[in-house]
Write a protein that binds this DNA or RNA. Structure first.
Lengths: 244, 244
DNA sequence: CGCAAATTTGAACGTAGTCAACAAGTGTGG
DNA sequence: CCACACTTGTTGACTACGTTCAAATTTGCG
């Protein structure tokens, strides 16, 4: 495994200098293993640390008064997590491991050091969070204005693209790794309806399924159904400050 | 009007130094007037500028293939807008004036200067965008997991709180300033259903309406119905880097 | 193998959408 | 100042998408 998963992600966007890479490696000096199902952070709990996810799949979510859950985001290796909790005295969202995971916890003072010592790196973290923001607005639009089928299609495309981000061997067949209830909680549907939409997408020959693996059979049709945009492309970083 | 509306917002969170305030004032040196309905930025258009909203009410939104619209956020004086477009070569969202407005456009190189010269200010802009991110996740949870009535209640509470942010005289009665169609596009509902929910909230004595003004009659009941959290409170900024 | 979790399916229900008509404002130009 | 056009708000009847509840079946795991 790389010395810094997060550096790998940012390094995919710009060329990092040696001192920048060193600063990012500091974030991942410590490691912590999480069992599947482990809760790394609860809502409304105090939290002074951030994390880089190094291995495995996690999710962030909120619980509502009536007990229902909204999954905000699935988290992949290289993701910087717990950023929103940094700025509040109580965490606004929970973090939970969907598979066995490895995370690297680091103190928030390290982030503040990056702002002081590595302006370009700070700007890149800012960019990284803005990408995340835009994917959230895409999902907001999906929940507000698209059909159940479109939301499932968008989720499948996004999962595949994000998996491919850490594993280039992923093509159009991949292990889903999520229960239909989790997919429902991410898309604002019930698990029952998620199941029906899977069936429908399969009947329409857009996907196929076999033992926990999904194949995107007709990717163009899925893209159309979902009006999906890959937000990790089309960036313009020409305005970044000089590296230090 | 203040020399920098954005400095007023950040200044409400921490004490700014003289040089920090001066850097923020640079962002608002130019001004541009917008008529009601004017589109400041279109989706998929190139954009090299950011803006501070100095006066009026704006919104950001996306249009979907079928012509439907999802309003992402209502924008108030002091808001930094167009940030997400900064990082892409094509704007991911549109910006439009809901009332006559005054905005201050500034080049993205000025932002990059702040990262280089004012680390604490850069961190504060980061914090400001994270607050925005959390409010987006609140809305995501609302669209995914709450009833129409709850979404309208949450929107009313949020509007009132944000209006109060720029005008302390606002109490529990305020001019709505939005059409029911706009409220529908923000909450993922149709204008017809928004109307029915208003009626229902009024029948249940949670709100009252008279000629474009809304009164939050039973704020506690609204908060309960909405499970609303004010994300401009409860911040912890003790980790910020030193000011320069 | 046996148990618990997850998936699948059916039937009935309900929330919110659609379509349509009308009322009430709002602003404009004659 | 009024007439007209246009936007916005309001209401009813009907429709449909997605939920709920329940039960059967499959899957994965200890």
């Amino acid at each position: 495994m790389s010395a810094s998963c997060f550096a790998d992600v940012l390094g995919g966007l710009i060329d990092l200098t040696g001192s920048e890479t060193a600063a990012l490696e500091k974030l991942e000096e410590r490691q912590r293993n999480l069992r599947r199902g482990a809760v790394l952070q609860r809502e409304r709990e105090r939290c002074n640390e951030l994390y880089v996810l190094r291995k495995g799949l996690m999710m962030s979510y909120v619980l509502l008064d009536d007990g229902s859950r909204q999954i905000l985001r699935f988290l992949f290796p290289g993701d910087l997590i717990g950023v929103s909790s940094l700025i509040y005295s109580e965490a606004p969202e929970a973090l939970c491991a969907l598979t066995d995971c490895v995370v690297a916890p680091f103190d928030r003072s390290l982030l503040s050091r990056i702002f002081s010592d590595h302006p370009r790196l700070a700007a890149m973290i800012f960019v990284y969070c803005q990408i995340e923001r835009v994917t959230l607005t895409d999902r907001l639009a999906a929940l507000g204005r698209t059909s159940a089928k479109a939301r499932i299609a968008a989720l499948l495309l996004d999962l595949r693209n994000r998996l491919r981000g850490t594993d280039r061997s992923v093509t159009n067949m991949f292990p889903l790794g999520l229960t239909q209830e989790e997919i429902g909680d991410a898309t604002g549907l019930t698990s029952v309806h998620v199941n029906r939409m899977f069936r429908q997408l399969a009947e329409e020959k857009m996907i196929s399924r076999e033992s926990g693996r999904v194949t995107l059979v007709d990717e163009a049709a899925l893209m159309q159904a979902a009006n999906y945009v890959n937000r990790y492309e089309g960036l313009d970083l020409s305005w970044l400050p000089p590296a230090r």
